[in-house]
Design a protein around this nucleic acid. Structure first.
Lengths: 225, 225
DNA sequence: TCTGAAATAATAAAGAAATAATAAAGAATC
DNA sequence: GATTCTTTATTATTTCTTTATTATTTCAGA
């Protein structure tokens, strides 16, 4: 089996060294970047299985790097920060971080979180066929069945449903959904999204006035259940 | 197992004596300093697991000692204050104190606070998914479950609960919470906070008249337990 | 340690603002 | 030409903010 590749983006050499030793001795392949810019380039050239990203970078804040990465990088990103910056956590997680770890950290905990994050990457690609109540979604075949009967969805509708269902249970922000489905330019076109959510609900919900699958989180986004 | 070491910085000999007796009989190793200056030197030479710091010191104010310690000392600092000094307490918490106790204090409460503070030293990383009694808070997914059932919180309610729960056991001052959730401009809008605490309690507490999770610290702030 | 005034907190409720749902018509695409 | 997408306008809903009232806590003085 191939070693899973992990990219470390952190400006402190001793932290990078510590992470490198810990990770390589646990059979990961490690890549390193000292600045946000460098990290983004490395991730683009050679997308790793997981990124460890420090919040306090010299060139640009880790939050900005996170946002930039999240425009195209879908796998796990674990944020690292110094102690006592709880306010950063909610922000980072809102911007799409997978998890969060405060420095200094115990290596057992680091490894546990990395395993969990990588497992999540994989489950994303494995569970391509899912059953949610009366709904059956088959992503490779691009089909959706409700109560055994095939539904007719447009391409965009299907992409939207697939995105939501892969992230079952978690809230996806409007921004994130728009970026994923319509690309960078559409991030503020919330109205698009509403219209498509409407047509989707009409098709997949038994009663579209009382949606069971697609829940609205006012001010934030939508959640598939 | 080693005894945890606690440094007391207080000018009143009878208080030091009382603390010494209480703590040593509970299996802590106690160090003592009568002035701020002395305390800083002792802490530097031999960093303890926890510092108990009196706000009213003769040579320099406890606030200054706190600030100086916080430039390098990351572990817990519990402030001791006389009664009727909310302003001091708020100031101390905003300067990075872990907790506070008003003199005279009951020894059971002292010991409970010390245990909680020392526990926090040890688990330095912040959990993004936490279980508190019947509550389950998952920050990345933005979900809260009570007794296994999903609760419906608004965006602001969730942010508030996330902030409180990340700082479990600590008192967060009104000012701090307002700044974190509503931004700089809202620091004096204490009434906002009360209204949101109210709606949160209604949703997460079994009996909102007797809140188990969100405790009020009158004149100071709130504490999540 | 009790008591009452003052400060602080909790609560309810209504009005304002922000956000979301919906319908429907015009553009673009296949 | 039918389907799908985008835009606009309107209505509905949710959330936030403010105000007023009541309850609780704190603390000084007896």
């Amino acid at each position: 089996m191939n070693k899973a590749e992990i990219l470390i983006i952190d400006d402190e050499p001793q932290i990078r060294k510590l992470l490198e030793i810990t990770l390589e001795s646990n059979d990961y392949k490690v890549w390193q970047a000292a600045t946000g810019k460098e990290g983004i380039i490395m991730a683009a050239n050679h997308p790793p299985e997981l990124i460890l990203l420090d919040i306090g970078l010299p060139d640009k804040s880790g939050h900005d790097v996170l946002k930039e990465l999240r425009t195209w990088y879908a796998k796990s990103i674990i944020m690292l920060s110094v102690q006592n910056s709880e306010a950063d956590i909610v922000k980072a997680l809102d911007n799409g971080a997978t998890d969060y770890l405060s420095k200094p950290f115990r290596s057992a905990e680091l490894l546990a979180r990395i395993r969990s994050a990588i497992r999540r990457n994989q489950s994303q690609s494995i569970e391509t066929k899912m059953v949610c109540g009366d709904l059956e979604i088959d992503i490779p075949a691009r089909t959706v069945k409700k109560g055994g009967e095939l539904l007719k969805l447009t391409s965009t509708e299907f992409n939207l449903l697939a995105l939501l269902s892969i992230n079952e249970g978690r809230v996806l922000t409007h921004q994130y959904i728009l970026k994923q489905i319509w690309g960078m330019g559409a991030q503020s076109e919330t109205q698009y999204l509403r219209v498509f959510i409407r047509t989707l609900r009409k098709k997949i919900e038994t009663n579209s006035d009382k949606p069971e699958h697609i829940h609205t989180e006012s001010g934030v986004g939508y959640r598939f259940v």
